[in-house]
Amino acid sequence: MESHVSHRERLWLYILVGLVLFFLVAPAIIVIPVSFSSTMAMSFPPSGWSLRWYESFFQQEKWIGALWVSLRVAFGTMILTTIVGVAASYALNQGRFGLRNLIRTTLVAPLAVPAILIAVGVFFIYAALGSMLNTIWGLILGHSVVAMPFVILTMTAGFNSYDASQEMVARSLGANRLKAFLTVTLPQLKFSVATSMLLSFLISFDELIISLMVSSGPMSTLPRVTFATLRDDVDPTLAAASSLMLIVTSLPPLILHLLSMRAARKEGRDAG
């Protein structure tokens, strides 16, 4: 949409938007230079450069342990939520049973419920059960609640654009249902499945509030240790930890976005 206003007349808008974009981007990446600082002072720009805070990160059991817990929990959440979510989305898309809307709403509901309430609820159930607090499985199941809506929404969009009669053809040719699903349907939905896996991994790796309520000590996740350190004392190792978290959680979506932009541009060129 071009407009009849000249660029000069709109200069104030360009400057304003530029400032807002700077406000958005700069704080997101400033931890990276700070993490290479050589001094105790966490300031920007750093007065000297070194890798000592990364050394500090990888030498302390507190941080290494937390990273390991986070990776295991995120991996578990990814596998569990994706399998369970793909099965549910398939059924919600293909099935013609009543209750479908109610079930879909329930599975997407965690998006609308404030995280603190989900955390309190999970904490209550685990406290009542007694044995789920401070366990990997407790964290995985808790994170799965938060990740579920994203898998359901992604997979529903995938199934909606998929022609289900192909699976019917495979079945009429003699494949059983599971085999038809795994060999005909799933390969065509691999992009949705990969997106679901990525999202559920990232959501779990980032999750803080549930972890804060249901884990402590050696079972703490990386965000949980970061939060506690941030609140209680000032340690530049935080900058190294934050940079690592930043790279793990921002790089995959960034790469995907750039790839999809390039694909869109190529498509545009081919079409034109």
Partner: peptide, 9 residues
């Protein structure tokens, strides 16, 4: 980019 960056970071 900030949208993808952890709120904690």
């Amino acid at each position: 980019v900030p949208f993808w960056t952890s709120g904690l970071v």
